[in-house]
Write a protein that binds this DNA or RNA. Sequence first.
DNA 1: AGAGGTTACGGGCAGCGTAAGGATC
DNA 2: GATCCTTACGCTGCCCGTAACCTCT
Lengths: 295, 295
Amino acid sequence: MVDFKSLETFVWVATLGSFRATAHKLNTTQPAISQRIAQLERELGVRLLSRDKRNVGLTAPGRELMVYAERLLQLRATMLGAIAEPSAMQGTLRLGVAETVVHTWLPRFIERLDATWPRLALELEVDISLNLRERLLAQEIDLAFLVGPLSDVTVRNLPLCSFPNAFIASPKIAFASVPVPVSELIRWPLITFAKNTQPYVAVRDLFAHSELGPPRLHASASLATVVRMALDGIGIAVIPPAIVREDVAAGRLRIVDAAIAVPDLAFTASWLIHPDTLVAERVAAMAAEIAAEDA
Amino acid sequence: MVDFKSLETFVWVATLGSFRATAHKLNTTQPAISQRIAQLERELGVRLLSRDKRNVGLTAPGRELMVYAERLLQLRATMLGAIAEPSAMQGTLRLGVAETVVHTWLPRFIERLDATWPRLALELEVDISLNLRERLLAQEIDLAFLVGPLSDVTVRNLPLCSFPNAFIASPKIAFASVPVPVSELIRWPLITFAKNTQPYVAVRDLFAHSELGPPRLHASASLATVVRMALDGIGIAVIPPAIVREDVAAGRLRIVDAAIAVPDLAFTASWLIHPDTLVAERVAAMAAEIAAEDA
DNA sequence: AGAGGTTACGGGCAGCGTAAGGATC
DNA sequence: GATCCTTACGCTGCCCGTAACCTCT
């Protein structure tokens, strides 16, 4: 009676102001949340939430309970961190990842994660950083590896790695002079990440004030497609070389010695500040390790 | 996972040093305790208790966990005390009561208890104070109304009421002079509580140094029997008049105007100091109220 | 052999998900 | 009527109690 599950549910409903959103957050159905709150109120004999209005609000006893509930959950998290064997971490972590990470150190990261915390389930979402940011703020993912940091007071950021961007082209594409001047680069379509991504904007701005006119930009939400197009000699990819290391080594692609540079892609692990961020923190720390090893 | 039930079980096993005793204390079976502890250890991935020896002991992580577990349980109890509607108190209270209380204000107390906390179940044990004391220290009852206070550092005492003792006899027994001198009182058997009770000892000591020789003492573990014997004129009862108020009012018994006095019977509510004493405290407070009304 | 903890197994019940039912804008 | 919470109901899985087993004194 009055267990941690009820309290956690209550805290989330109070925080999110919605049963539905809480159900989604806790990976269950909305009636289950109704039931938990109803039982909590029945056991305490007190109405905790006012649901008469459009969005759910706290009653006076509800506000009072919040203080205790958060302290209890915090204390339990601390306890688990202090006592539990590392390998005992369990549950489900919803992780959002930018595609660049997928093509670099994510496989090694997942391997290590599984070896270290075998009972921790991973739900992976791959999307562009902008969408991941929204998903994170909406509590729909617990942790994200994205182009950061996120400047939000409720978010903690941990630097992971920084990939230099480069112009990468098929050997089929020949350049007259080295280093390749902007005027020559711009003859080819520049292929990079989807619109609204940091690299896309960076590339666009790089040539924005050029007297040579706007470059032709090919944007793809799929990194594999970017690489494919570069391999086919359709244009010059503007991506971190780390992604296509093998293709470069095999001579299918080469790094263009360009006269200009594109800003680096800096990745962070980012998660919301909450009573229970232990798992996110540890996973983020591991990601930072892996990323460091990779560099 | 790692809920309050597991933690409470763990704390009790650690405190009592026995699975069996814990099972008894928590009103369940010993395998259930085994299972809870096993699951807790499985979830934390740590061995908490060493059961190799004759009695169960804490491991290093177990000692560490105790600190957190006790804080968590304490905090939860405080929370319930602060938030829960009074009528929401529930569970089972094992109450030990001295017989005198049963025959005075206990019926009114139970009535009020049931009206105030209808979801609180009561397990009643009637015995002499000495046995109640042992039961309390052995954690076999949660609260006791007995002749107190108990001088044990682990026990809290709350004064309830003080009954004057008196010599009470059937009208069949006539006395030559008033107030009745010791020499005349002692002609009759003195009937009082069981051996090892405070009144029995008091009565015995009262006449111990008398030159008139030791009195004939009838001791009964059953108050009803004491009263019966007094009604039948077998001897003079030495009990609080409050017990036989009706018989005195109806003229079946009368209070003897004796030349000597027997010490009062002071009752206290007594309970062990624990993380979760909220229920005991509140019930004791109610008992004190009832007892005060009675006086 | 007896006390105390563990393991095995069957049953009961809490809690979940699906689906239908209000209430409020 | 759309959105959100509540209620109804069948089901699954957890946890308990019984009973047999193991270990140590």
